[in-house]
């Protein structure tokens, strides 16, 4: 538990609509009422496909309540951009971490866990466990 503060979740995709839709799905599946803060950072500021450090930093600041920020990513440049931002610089709030998880399944698990008051370690563990969810 994290003393009443909820962990923030950032969803980084190459596509704005994908990030927004996964955020909406995760919120919808997490609860009927209020959920932990979730922000989408998809595509480029111009609306194209790609990854934007600026949008990621903005999204992380917007969901940071002091309990940590779990960042889930899709592919390639999304992974590398977040890794680079964490490795150097001060663009991300303290307590931000890149979570190794499948994007959609991990997002649902992370938002459910954060909304229930789980701390950043619990949110990360829940999202990563989505790797074990096999469909056949």
């Amino acid at each position: 538990m994290s003393g009443g503060k909820q962990v923030g979740i950032v969803l980084v995709s190459h596509s704005g609509p994908v990030a927004e839709s996964v955020a909406e799905l995760a919120r919808g599946l997490a609860a009927g009422g209020a959920t932990a803060p979730v922000a989408a950072a998809g595509g480029t500021p111009a609306g194209g496909l790609g990854t934007s450090a600026e949008l990621i930093a903005e999204a992380a600041r917007s969901v940071d309540g002091g309990a940590g920020v779990a960042i889930l990513v899709d592919l390639g440049s999304a992974v590398l951009t977040v890794k680079t931002m964490l490795a150097e610089g001060d663009e991300l709030p303290d307590g931000s971490r890149l979570v190794d998880a499948p994007f959609l399944e991990g997002a649902v698990a992370a938002v459910v866990t954060a909304s229930a008051g789980g701390d950043i370690a619990a949110v990360e563990a829940a999202a990563s466990e989505a790797h074990e969810y096999h469909k056949v």
Binding site: T51, S52, A53, G76, S77, L80, T81, T84, G89
Partner: peptide, 21 residues
């Protein structure tokens, strides 16, 4: 390097950004 990380939008941004920084 910082400019490349901020503006490129593909994997080459963080990679070249890391190289130069």
């Amino acid at each position: 390097g910082r400019q490349l990380i901020a503006t490129v939008g593909g994997a080459s941004g963080p990679l070249y950004g890391t190289l130069l920084r």
